[in-house]
Design a protein around this nucleic acid. Structure first.
Lengths: 199, 199, 199, 199
DNA sequence: TATGAATGAGCCTTCATTCAT
DNA sequence: TATGAATGAAGGCTCATTCAT
């Protein structure tokens, strides 16, 4: 806004746009490398995949962890944004929950290194926070609508979400494990199961 | 006991026993190291904990992966053995399933690096096979008894098991995530949920 | 002042002045960064302190070494200029030597990375030459006046100077080492000591 | 002692001896590399010079700093041991001081990276302590004998020592700077100069 | 058979310098 | 002319694995 109101934004602006595009390129490259070789992929590998030097990666993401976080943050944000509208478009609150979690699974399955990343000490910490901040509230809202009255299993939105996340670890690497089916069963348990108690 | 009752056990046999004891020592040491510092623990750390040189570890387990596998194999076997009897002692087939999976969770939660280890390329591969070979049949048997008639969600025993396994990843590291409650909800979905379809 | 009195100073001249001011700004920034974080400070840090891009630094100083040299050259020049007058204002030639070397110490101690910088291959080389060219003659003149007749220890002006320089390395970082006292003892040895021979 | 009393010390002992020899080899290699390319020499360079892999260096010296310290510690110990006897063999206490400091200079000049090393944050710290612990007491003893009555310049043994150390920085790299002559002048100032005061 | 020293590939990160805009 | 993004060599360190003793 500030910038677009500036008339005749010259080379300065061009550079900004360029840098932004470049960062996007890095994120895309990183995402795809993470999918292929795992979140443990060396920074060098990401740099190579992006066709840049390692220095470039480090300019944009001061730390390996920052890079990983950025990769997923990007996608988490989109997912969070997609949540609320489902309450209107899906047939029922239950369906909204299932649909949204389906998208969550799609996301995780595609970038299947994510769940693993959450396990890492350094990387996991920051990523985790972003998850909690952005996804949990959305999940909570959908869940509240769906379990109004019935109650469901009584899991917290965080637990539901992380459960799905865990279920998706290694997804797509094992033809014997149909992530989506398993998640569907889990969600059933969450929504219609009797209360699982407090501990 | 078993061995000393065998007549004619000479020095040869003694050596065998000794080697067995030695390997046990290594496995115990490894198990405890894995619990404390994670499955990523350097081989050296295991050797140190066992009070032996790394060479000794490598004599018994040609590869780091072999060691890890052996550690968990040991414990998986015990779990498999514990399964069938539950069908008799637990009140119902459903309860048997829940009880056995509870033990599975206990096992995974206690040795909390395990689930993560299954994600590793080198280590996971071998471990996985042992899981499939030893635990899946047991799980299948219990499940068959429990879903006879009702059908449940229609997941394979393998999916059920791996689902629980995934749910246990990172257990105990996050106070907000009560692994056991989540698993309980999942099992509910598995047992009482409507069929989740084929894909 | 000097410049504005020159008739016919057009825009060309103005640009020159501007460039000069700019360079001054860079030097000041560099000097202060070097004092704070050491002569090892990254070029980027200097650029940031000066509020310019690294490119600007490199336009003015083709090499990191050139920058460092320039920073100290600036201050060395002032020291050289201050020398001759001391012969008149200080009470005696001996006192003049001591006073001037005191200033030298002040300079080195204040910009405490300098002495260390002289040790560096790339940076030290160029800096060294400037030292020899500008400070040694001054030192030699003062020394000649002071040792006329007595002879002193017979060190060369270069050796005296570099000796003081070395003594100042790490000054201020070690409360147990009072640089000024040590230098005073050294200068005593230089002025009143018996000839130390030729080697 | 403990070991030599053990009769028939077998391969165990041989290994120990071997390891010791090897460490000596590493230290020698490191010392020579440090002389040639400076204390900043990459660990890789030392490893190469010693004809071993970097891992070997790190096995013996967990940290780059440890290596550097070890290199000099070795030589400092010998110097410390050489001190007391000089009081008897040199003609006078003054001569003893000069002779010992001469040896100190010999040592520093030969391994001329030392003084520089003392400037380094990580490396310097540990090295410094060893200096203070082992050399300063020796120097103090000699100095006390030499300045008994006369008083000298009143520098502490630490200052005297570090002064000489500083004077030796870069020794041998500059034909115009005769380290030994300069040090001799300095020592003169220390021994016969008037008191330089307290600050 | 046990030991542990040695190996070396590979990792993350920093920073001087270049160059398109 | 100024900018700062990109580069990539280099460095310290870790750890699985081999092998002489």
């Amino acid at each position: 806004m500030t910038e677009s109101s500036e008339p005749g934004a010259g080379p300065r602006r061009a550079k900004r746009v360029d840098a932004f595009r470049n960062e996007q390129k890095l994120l895309d490259a990183a995402a795809s490398v993470f999918v292929e070789v795992g979140v443990d992929a060396p920074v060098r590998a990401v740099a190579a995949a992006a066709g840049v030097g390692v220095g470039t990666i480090y300019r944009h993401f001061p730390t390996r962890a920052d890079l990983v976080v950025a990769v997923y943050r990007h996608q988490v944000d989109m997912l969070a944004a997609a949540g609320p509208s489902l309450l209107a478009t899906s047939g029922s609150p239950d369906a909204a929950v299932r649909d949204w979690l389906d998208q969550f699974v799609d996301f995780l399955v595609t970038k299947h290194g994510l769940a693993a990343a959450l396990q890492d000490d350094k990387v996991g910490a920051a990523l985790h926070q972003h998850f909690v901040d952005h996804l949990v509230p959305v999940c909570a809202e959908l869940l509240a609508a769906a379990t109004k009255g019935s109650g469901g299993a009584g899991l917290t939105a965080y637990e539901v979400l992380r459960g799905v996340g865990n279920l998706c670890i290694g997804a797509g690497q094992d033809p014997m494990f149909d992530t989506r089916r398993v998640v569907r069963a889990y969600v059933s348990g969450v929504l219609i199961g009797e209360d699982v108690g407090r501990g």
